[in-house]
């Protein structure tokens, strides 16, 4: 997987943020086009390509969700293909409640719902961490399926949290 190779990493779902940043800086120092501006054109081109790859890799891998999606797609599992089906039925009641609160601009209820969904998000993140560790210990397609399900659930909740926050923010500003 190119993004992992670019930063000199083994393909793992769980990564240490500090280590990742250090690798990013080290490789940027080595490959950034600024270091090659007095070099021949061919070397400049290589530096440009390498740095673009390093930047793309760091941008993707530093975000756990984007990282997992990358690993899924590299293993032939498109996260988005399953998205619609994986919307969790058990959330229906809470989602309806939030939507109603958003529609009625009921600030207090939106805030309550937001709290609920934020703790759910933390829950999914915890679940993901466990699934990441499991896949890292013994990578297999079977262990990626639950990652995909959890990821889609996470995305769904994250969108709700984002909308609720936005509503509260605009309410506060006006």
């Amino acid at each position: 997987m190119r993004y992992y190779e670019a930063l000199g990493l083994e393909p793992r779902l769980a990564l240490d943020a500090g280590d990742l940043q250090k690798r990013f800086y080290d490789r940027s120092r080595q490959w950034h086009p600024d270091r090659f501006s007095t070099r021949p054109a061919a070397e400049q081109r290589t530096a440009l390509e390498m740095t673009a790859l390093i930047n793309d890799a760091f941008r993707t891998l530093r975000d756990p969700a984007a990282r997992a999606e990358y690993v899924l797609s590299e293993n032939g599992l498109e996260a988005s293909a399953q998205r619609g089906k994986d919307v969790p039925a058990d959330l229906l009641e809470e989602v309806l409640e939030l939507n109603m609160a958003l529609e009625e601009a009921d600030g207090a209820q939106v805030a309550r719902s937001l709290g609920q969904f934020e703790s759910m998000l933390a829950g999914v993140d915890g679940q993901l961490a466990g699934l990441f560790a499991a896949w890292d210990a013994a990578p297999s397609a079977g262990r990626l399926e639950p990652v995909r399900a959890a990821l889609n659930r996470r995305k769904y909740i994250a969108n709700l949290v984002r909308d609720a926050r936005k509503t509260l923010e605009t309410a506060r500003e006006t």
């Binding site: 086009p33 440009l48 740095t51 673009a52 790859l53 930047n55 793309d56 760091f58 941008r59």
Partner: peptide, 8 residues
């Protein structure tokens, strides 16, 4: 806000 060079 993607660091450049960046590609897609």
């Amino acid at each position: 806000n993607s660091t450049i060079p960046a590609s897609a």
